Amino acid sequence: MTLPTFKYNPDPISLNVIKKEHTTCPVCEKESEYVYHGPFYSVEDIEGICPWCIKDGSAAKKYNGSFQDDVSCDDVNQQEYVDELIFRTPGYCGWQQEYWLSHCGDFCAIVQYVGWKEIEHLEEELSEDIEDICSGGGLTKENLKQWLVNGGDLQGYLFQCVHCKKHRLYIDAS
């Protein structure tokens, strides 16, 4: 069975939030070879959700939950985009509270977890985000380049606009 595609998380397997692992989905009660291992916000502690129940919104509906905290996102005016992100898109795993960036009036797609070496070729394209990160976090650009390590204490998350393909950067610290 082909995995569903997600507009805002096009490769959840590479982000390690969907894994090839046997499960019986608590939503559809079907056996699946793929299981979700990312954030899910609900009153109940739910495990074993299959990707198909994320995609069709049935997991969020059944458990009155979400895959992204709607206050931890850039503002987007289209409610349909917000609903797709929080109710029908697998999240990603961050050190602290995950945050979802936007561009061109829509949410961006999460691309990968990054350190400086993975994004140094995008320095010019990411310059606005880098300036905002440094000014808001009390970092110098040199500190950011040194301390931003994939899997390290300062973790980067690379996003890409689903319309114009511009890259965006978000970071958090452990």
Rank of each mutant, 00 (worst) to 15 (best):
Y81K: 13
I49N: 00
G151Y: 09
W116Q: 09
I18G: 02
W52D: 00
P51K: 01
T23L: 07
E128T: 14
C73E: 05
E120Y: 12
E33W: 09
G115T: 01
A59T: 03
L3P: 07
C73K: 10
S127R: 08
A173K: 00
E47F: 00
W116M: 10
V149I: 15
E44G: 02
K145V: 00
E29V: 12
I171F: 13
F87R: 15
H37R: 02
H163G: 01
L126A: 03
E33G: 15
M1H: 03
L3D: 07
S135W: 14
L169A: 01
S127F: 00
I46L: 01
Y41L: 14
K165Y: 09
Y92C: 09
E123H: 08
L148T: 05
D74F: 09
S58F: 09
E44V: 06
T23D: 03
A173V: 05
H167C: 12
G105V: 15
E84N: 14
D83F: 08
L169M: 01
C28H: 11
E131W: 04
R88E: 11
C93P: 00
Y157H: 13
E98L: 06
S14P: 00
G91T: 08
Q78W: 11
K145H: 01
E131Q: 10
E21H: 07
E128N: 14
M1F: 04
L169E: 04
L144D: 03
T2R: 15
I13H: 11
V17K: 02
L101R: 08
Y81T: 08
L126S: 08
K61R: 12
G115S: 05
Y63R: 12
N77C: 09
S127D: 10
F87K: 15
Q68P: 09
G48Y: 03
Y63W: 14
I46Q: 06
C104S: 15
V114H: 03
S14T: 13
P39S: 13
L101Y: 04
E123N: 02
Y157N: 06
F87I: 13
E21S: 05
E120W: 09
E80A: 14
E80N: 15
P4A: 11
N16L: 12
S42K: 03
E31F: 10
P12N: 02
T5K: 13
E84A: 10
G94D: 14
E124A: 12
Y157S: 07
G151A: 08
K141E: 13
Y157T: 04
N77H: 13
C134V: 10
W116L: 11
N9R: 04
H163L: 08
W100I: 07
D106S: 05
G115E: 04
S42P: 10
E124D: 06
G105Y: 12
H167K: 15
L85R: 05
K30E: 14
Q68K: 04
E128Q: 12
S32R: 07
K7N: 07
E118A: 00
Q97A: 05
D75H: 13
I46D: 02
N16W: 10
K20P: 01
E44L: 13
G137M: 09
G152T: 12
Y92E: 10
Q155A: 12
Q160C: 10
T5F: 00
P10L: 10
E125V: 03
D153L: 04
S58I: 00
Q79I: 15
